[in-house]
Design a protein around this nucleic acid. Sequence first.
DNA 1: GTTTCCAAAATTGTATACAATTTGTATTCA
DNA 2: TGAATACAAATTGTATACAATTTTGGAAAC
Lengths: 250, 250
Amino acid sequence: MAQPIPLQKDPSQAERALLGIRDLVLRGEFRSGERLPELALVELLGMSRTPIRAALQKLAEEGLLEASQPTGYTVRGFSETEIADAIEVRGTLEALAARMAAERGVSTSFLAAMSDCLDRIEALLKRPKPGRDFLAQYCQFNTQFHELLAEASGSEIVVRALARAGSLPFAGHNAFVSVQGEIPASLEIFRAAQRQHREILEAIEARSSARVEPLVKEHARIAYKNLQLVLQNNEAMKSLPGASLIRRRP
Amino acid sequence: MAQPIPLQKDPSQAERALLGIRDLVLRGEFRSGERLPELALVELLGMSRTPIRAALQKLAEEGLLEASQPTGYTVRGFSETEIADAIEVRGTLEALAARMAAERGVSTSFLAAMSDCLDRIEALLKRPKPGRDFLAQYCQFNTQFHELLAEASGSEIVVRALARAGSLPFAGHNAFVSVQGEIPASLEIFRAAQRQHREILEAIEARSSARVEPLVKEHARIAYKNLQLVLQNNEAMKSLPGASLIRRRP
DNA sequence: GTTTCCAAAATTGTATACAATTTGTATTCA
DNA sequence: TGAATACAAATTGTATACAATTTTGGAAAC
């Protein structure tokens, strides 16, 4: 009998390197523009250079690092404009995915799965006292909905393009959710996002490609609004992973 | 004094591996779905495993290869639909770039550079007898125009996203240009594309973001038409690099 | 005080040995 | 015959040694 659950084996050194370096950078252990010497990472992570080199290459593809001339990698910094652009790219591709879903049609069972996901978010938002793990659960279901939306396109190519666009720091769906606890208006933002989720799903069910596209683009703009809220809130900035990578306006 | 020309040094083993493996795959030395054992590539390319592994990782990011479970890489195959989707993704991002260029505005000198590039394409198309290097030169200037268009967005993020979308096999601007020599209607296709180039540039100059977006999307569709022409033309298929990766309809 | 040059140190590029894992194959037992 | 198992081969993961390159620091020259 095969194991249906993809139970994860112990992670390889390469995976540990990927997570470890990303964590170091997002924690601000290296400033933006600073080099990441391989030997320093060998010391910090306790493994050989080989998996570290692989991870550096991946993180550069991801956009978190930058290949620096003539050799080596540096931490990349992001201006507010660049983050906005990254959100725009992600939103554009997500709108494409939604349009394709509406045009090509999505199976009833798949639509039901998407609806289930939204039901869970609603249940979460109806709870009178949001618990400590509220944000974590919201992120989980929000991610799931957006992954389903990408899959709904029926195109592996689009799924890949979206995954890459969303892997840039601050460009993903949950980019600024982690610090919403610090921000007063956050609950209302979640509710607005959830209303949009429902409208997007309805438009796909109705095969209304013309309607779903602007809906998704507008939904992506929430991330941009959150960016601005966070930038104005010092408490939020303190607890934002990767805050040190953001170059404030001169 | 700095060297203005980025004269290329002798390529590293890693670069040779990248080009070499891509060439092997595009030449059809490995069938789609087939594994690429590292040691086989060591034999074929005459270098150690280290640069080969780096190249494999890059080619997988690029989309030409696929990480296969539980380990290793295989050659990826592409259905006609997937190629069409890849073109759609590229066109969507190119339209975004053009819209941003129109909205944010582009310097006069930059617009002049784009116009110069189009002048050269026109000169090429006016020649009574297209020479042997006609296609090569067309590709060069066509690539230049599309790179300038991406840059015109003013966004490094968008440039990167576009570069990645265009790196997928058959998704780039020049995807099927190399075999246009085999196709009768090709000269008229080039002329139509050039007319669109001009209209796109005019729309950007006029800051007409609403107009430039559909223009660019329509322009990308030329690649899709070329795909269909090539698929119907056996001679063209024979000389198309990577033809072996295309899964014909069942 | 500034510049130029060279040696030392640091860093990355490459090859290769070894370990761990997966795959293939034969052999044994029911 | 068929399934299970054990062993061998192939393949990838990781560490590390060595080579090539780049950076650094400082002494000497101007």
